[in-house]
Write a protein that binds this DNA or RNA. Structure first.
Length: 662
DNA sequence: ATGGTTAGGCTTTAGACAGCATGTC
DNA sequence: CTAAAGCCTAACCAT
């Protein structure tokens, strides 16, 4: 099947031809056969980089009206925006929290690219363009199973479809265990495929020997570092443990092997620090020395240095000069951008990364090495989900550049079988709805009431009827949980029962509930802010610290790790500033959590007081990127606080002061 | 006394979405 | 239901 046989305009056909796209890949063909070009609902569960974007473009270009492309990451939204904008004759708009092409202008676009939260927010704020859509494409639908963001996605999709029954829905998913359930939910045709444009072989490495799933194997020389080699000579009771090479040495050898062969590599590790350590080690090994990476790498290092004078920045620059980089969420977006583009330009031979890179922007490599398959989480060390490891592995293989991609999981003799079974042969997990989570349900129940979509519990259930959860668990499955959510919201002062008759009442959002929903904060956050503002108004002197304490002590602010060594210091800080804090230290519900909030508040307060990134990063042991994200959230939450203050008629000047100083 | 080594204990641990109204080059 | 690695310090050992 050829592109020019599709119902596309000649200029679009030319556009694709210029990029070498003339023939459809098998999964794309299957999607066309399923009717993506004729308005049919389609779920495509296919591997990363097998041409999902093209399927999205087909749906959006052939739709009879404006289209919406929903994706989970802002960086991804930006990337898709660029590729859609390159299409001839298509007006594209983008709408994400950090980058918004003016609300009303979106109505005029042929295609809008947005994050799911932004679409949800647009619905809550009554944006008109969402009702005029002819087609919605949801990328990475398997995120339906994500703890907090999954419910948003399914409720948003359900709402869009409910308000617009003719809406064509196209959902793109990674390969998961139950794509049929997703297709069933959307009444869509299912396209399932394992096909990839570049073959991928996955192997398990024990020592320097790698066995791939296609029966081939390779071996690499593992240089052990001296310290390990030394203690092997001395130890006697260790037995065969001496024969067990260090996973980091194995990883380094696998990376060096790929690089020596002219390929680029991604190495995934468990923590940020280990990503940095590994990158520094590879740089020291002179990994990319003979690659002639020289000038361009120096330029990238310079760019990294220009971002800030942080320790992280200096480490990154040093690594880049050696043709290596690290990548994790503690990096500022400027640093991430430098690393990503340097890698794409092939000025970097290897990126050592945490999972940020697994699902983010496009950075294909010849070989992917997954050093750690277990990671610390709630409740100790746990296996990383198969889906996630598959996404890391899926980054291997660059079309047109590599004969095939290679993914190598580093194991040892004891774990080899478990790793092989779980990740090489194992199926990815099934996607499960998280909507029943009380916290999520509360926010979406409030949204339904606040937008006047529902005024009774049974109407709320109607709103949720189109949801993945309802399809899986049955319509009545949510009734009890919704009743609890309503009670909670009434108790929180977000929703009121307006009696009309004896047993007859209507649910109405209170002014506070409405503002909370529109500001897109969770009900608990709205509640905490309202209480905080009232308390702040009673304080003899509310300062910017007060404002920060209030917004940091909410579930919408990410918490900041509080080390044992710092705890006493933060405690003292809280005591000496007790007059400016809204919480009585002697009887907090969650003292530890509150102390963490105080730490975050203190950081933000010093930030507006003129402290530099360098100082704060040093003093509070957080990454530069962590500071940025907290500042960003603080801006949002302070504006929510201002809006809430207005609706309850409590003015706290410190809130506005803090906000303008940010 | 000095220097070096080791055992044991303590600390730390992935990621990232959202509002809104103006002003500016 | 589930951990592991780095760093610091104190103790210990050899010279």
């Amino acid at each position: 099947m050829r592109v020019r046989d599709l119902p596309l305009s000649p200029s679009v056909v030319d556009h694709f031809a210029e990029r070498g796209v003339r023939e459809l890949y098998p999964p794309q063909r299957a999607a066309v056969d399923a009717g993506v070009c004729e308005g049919a609902d389609v779920v495509a569960a296919v591997p990363t980089a097998s041409g999902k974007t093209f399927v999205a473009q087909l749906a959006l270009l052939t739709a009879d009206g404006p289209g919406l492309y929903v994706c989970p990451l802002r960086a991804l939204a930006r990337e898709k925006y660029e590729t859609f904008a390159a299409l001839p004759g298509v007006d594209v708009g983008i709408s994400t929290g950090d980058f918004d092409a003016t609300g009303e202008a979106l109505a005029g676009n042929d295609v809008v690219v947005a994050t799911s939260e932004k679409v949800d927010s647009a619905i809550r704020n009554g944006a008109s363009w969402v009702d005029e859509l002819a087609c919605v494409v949801v990328d990475e639908v398997h995120l339906l199973g994500a703890k907090r963001r999954g419910p948003t996605l399914e409720v948003t999709l359900a709402t869009l479809r409910r308000r617009n029954p003719d809406l064509q829905t196209v959902a793109l998913s990674a390969t998961v265990d139950n794509p049929d359930a997703i297709a069933d939910w959307l009444d869509a045709a299912l396209v399932e495929s394992e096909w990839r444009p570049v073959d991928l072989r996955t192997g398990v490495a024990v020592g320097g020997a790698v066995d791939f799933d296609d029966g081939t194997n390779i071996s690499v020389d593992v240089d052990r570092d001296e310290a390990k080699a030394d203690d092997e000579g001395g130890g006697d009771g260790e037995g065969d443990e001496a024969d067990e090479p260090d996973p980091t040495d194995v990883t380094a050898a696998l990376v060096a092997d790929a690089v020596a062969d002219g390929g680029q590599c991604l190495a995934f590790v468990r923590s940020r620090r280990e990503a940095v350590d590994l990158a520094e080690r590879l740089a020291e090994d002179g990994l990319a020395a003979e690659l002639g990476i020289g000038d361009a790498a120096a330029a990238a290092a310079e760019e990294a240095t220009d971002v800030d004078g942080t320790l992280t920045g200096r480490q990154l620059a040093d690594c880049l000069r050696a043709g290596v980089a690290f990548h994790h969420a503690g990096l500022r977006s400027g640093h991430r951008g430098v690393v990503e583009s340097a890698f794409r330009e092939r000025d970097v031979a290897c990126i050592c990364a945490t999972p940020t890179l697994a699902a983010g922007v496009n950075v294909p490599a010849r070989r992917v090495v997954v050093r750690d398959q277990r990671r610390y989480g709630e409740g100790g060390m746990a296996w990383i989900p198969t889906l996630e490891v598959h996404q890391m592995c899926g980054r291997a293989g660059r079309p047109g550049l590599d004969p095939h991609g290679e993914a190598v999981l580093v194991a040892d003799a004891d774990t080899r079988e478990a790793v092989r079974e779980r990740y090489v042969e194992g199926e990815p997990e099934a996607v499960e709805s998280q909507l029943a989570d009380p916290g999520s349900l509360r926010t979406h129940v409030l949204a339904a009431v606040a937008t006047d979509f529902a005024a009774t519990e049974s109407e709320i259930l109607d709103v949720f009827e189109g949801t993945f959860y309802a399809r899986e668990a049955g319509a009545g499955g949510l009734a009890d949980a919704v009743a609890v959510a309503v009670d909670d919201l009434v108790a929180a002062g977000m929703v009121a029962r307006e009696t009309g008759g004896v047993e007859d009442y209507r649910l109405v959002a209170t002014a506070v509930g409405e503002t909370t929903s529109k500001q897109y904060v969770r009900p608990e956050t709205g509640e905490r802010i309202v209480a905080g503002l009232r308390a702040a108004a009673d304080l003899p002197e509310a300062t910017t610290l007060t404002a920060f304490e209030v917004i940091c002590d909410t579930p919408d602010m990410q918490d900041t790790y509080l080390g044992n060594a710092e705890r006493a210091e933060i405690y003292r800080f809280a005591r000496t500033n007790a007059a400016h804090l809204t919480t009585d230290m002697t009887e907090p519900d969650d003292f530890e959590g509150w102390l963490e909030s105080v730490k975050t508040a203190r950081i933000l307060n010093e930030w507006i007081g003129g402290a530099t990134v360098e100082e704060l990063v040093e003093e509070y042991r957080i990454g530069p990127g962590d500071l940025d994200s907290r500042v960003e959230r603080a801006e949002w939450l302070l504006s929510a606080a201002e809006a809430l203050g207005e609706t309850i008629g409590v003015r706290v000047p410190a809130v506005s002061r803090a906000r303008s100083r940010l």
